[in-house]
Write a protein that binds this DNA or RNA. Sequence first.
DNA 1: TTCTTATTAAAGAATAATTCTCATTAAGGA
DNA 2: TCCTTAATGAGAATTATTCTTTAATAAGAA
Lengths: 141, 141
Amino acid sequence: MKVLIEDIRNKFSLKGLKITPQRVVILEAIYKLNNHPTADNIIEYIRELQPNIATGTVYKVLDTLVENGLIKKVTTDKDVMRYDGIIENHHHLYCSECDLIEDYKDEELDKLLHNHFKNKKIEGFKIEDIVLQIRGTFNKC
Amino acid sequence: MKVLIEDIRNKFSLKGLKITPQRVVILEAIYKLNNHPTADNIIEYIRELQPNIATGTVYKVLDTLVENGLIKKVTTDKDVMRYDGIIENHHHLYCSECDLIEDYKDEELDKLLHNHFKNKKIEGFKIEDIVLQIRGTFNKC
DNA sequence: TTCTTATTAAAGAATAATTCTCATTAAGGA
DNA sequence: TCCTTAATGAGAATTATTCTTTAATAAGAA
Ligand SMILES: [Mn+2]
Ligand SMILES: [Mn+2]
Ligand SMILES: [Zn+2]
Ligand SMILES: [Zn+2]
C-alpha cells in the first residue's frame, strides 16, 4: 500500500492534532502493516525507524487515533487488541486456524442489512453501525 | 432464569467431563448472571457459595467450558473477556454508553444471511458461523 | 525568527487480567 | 473401597496496558 506522509499529516491537522513524528510513524505503520496489527506488531515495525519510541507512547497514540476516528479497534477472542487503519464500515473474516483477520467488503450485504433494519426496528435501541464477525477457515490455512 | 443443577451435571457427563463442585457452580453462575459476565463477575458471585475457589481455577474452568462448547466467548473492545452461556447462534447489541451487551435473536435476519452467503461464496474461505456486532445506544442509557 | 506555553513523549514503575507451577485433593472407574 | 489421573488451591509469574513524573517539542504569538 502506497502511504503518503503528507496525507497523514493532513489527517492530523484536520482533527486539530499536533503533528509529531511518533504519531506520523505509528499511523504510517498501521497503514503499511496489514492483517490488523497489535500494538506490539506496530512497535516492532517502528523500532527500525524510531528505535527510541516508548511503548507507553504507542499505546497513548493508538488511543488518540481511535478517539479521533483515524483508526478502529478490532475485537478478538484473544486478550490483545488489534487495530484497523480502514475506517470505512466493513466486515471481518476470522480464521479458526490462525490469527488472520481479513477484511470483507460486500455492498450487497450492507444494503440487505440496511433494508432489514429499516423495517425491523430494535425496541429501545438505536443502531450506529454493524460489523459482521465471520468465523471460518481459509483454504490456505 | 431457572437453572437446574441436574441439567448442568448432565452437560458435563455428556462431554465426558468430571463433575466437580467448582465446574458446576461456575456454569451455574454464568447461567444466572446475565449481561455476559467477566471472569471477575463470576468469581465475585461464586465467592458467596464457594469462598475458597481459586481464581486460577475459574479461568481454567472457563477455558474448559469454552473448549467443550458449553459456553462461548464474547469479544469486546475492552481488555476483559466476557462469557456467554447461550450457545445457540445469536447476535449482540453493544451499548456505546456503557458496557451492556444484550442478546439479539432474529431468525429472519439469519435466513437472510444464510441465503446471501449460499449464493455469494467467499473465495478461499469456508464460513462456520456469523455473529453481528450491532453497536448503538439503548434509550435507557 | 524567536519566545511561550500547552501538549506530547520518554522512562520506567504500577496495575489488571490472565497464565503457570507444583503440591494437594478428589472424581470416577476398577 | 482403592487407585489412578485429572482437577484444584495457592501464589508466583507473565503479559498487555496504563499511569506518573520529568523532559522535550510543536505550533501559535510576538
Ligand atoms: Mn479491517
Ligand atoms: Mn449472548
Ligand atoms: Zn488461518
Ligand atoms: Zn448502555
